[in-house]
Amino acid sequence: MGQKENDVVIRDLDKIYGNLLKEDTVALKGINLSIKKGEFVSIIGPSGCGKSTLLKIIGGLEKLSAGTIEYSDPENRLGFVFQDSVLLPWKNVRENAEFPLVIQKKQTKENEEKLDALLDLAGLKEFSSALPRELSGGMKSRVSIVRALSYDAPLLLMDEPFGALDALTRDHLNIELLKIWSKTNKTIIFVTHSIEEAVFLSDRVIVMATRPGRIREIVPIDLTRPRDEDSRNDSKFGEYCRYLREIIG
């Protein structure tokens, strides 16, 4: 696999939290991972295995203790979708989605049109002027995804974005996310607790183990695309879920 095909290459990454009174905590140990351009990768594992920490390190929100990360984009532009949708409560749906363009001073006509198309794709056009407090949890999640896609970041990092939603809304948003992903062709790294969600969405599932946080296995998901509700009834889907459940224990 050549370097040019990859969007992110992580080599020998460690994350250690120093502690004055107790022993240092090793959150991540020896992480090696390459993520291809346009790939959809999920990270799953038990609580405390460091999956969110790994995502934050890739996103530049936490420092690594050892190792390197290489990005294909020299400017290291990325979008981040947090577990809570993190919408600014005084801005309406469109203004929240437009926020990155405002910060980066990229409110060109072309970008604004692209934003409107994304809002339409996410079913939010009619709610453009609604305030976050008027939205359901699912709609808030959609706004935060559109916000992360609104600017030209080739890499999208998602930290359990649907974790707080009910199962039905989550399933529905998974299908919408895949639709948006197929049209934008971004690289997505998606952290989740749900095995079914990881299998449904991903090209590869990275299974992490705890104490110290490390990669236990990388499972390629060979399900046909585009995926929809019926994909969950595929016998292979069930097999992948069972296998991953066994590994995680």
Binding site: F82, L88, I103
Partner: peptide
Amino acid sequence: PADVRNLLKVLKANRWQVFSQV
């Protein structure tokens, strides 16, 4: 919230933008 500050960091907002926008 910490994640609002994280969002600003990801977007590479400058100090004035952090103050005036958020």
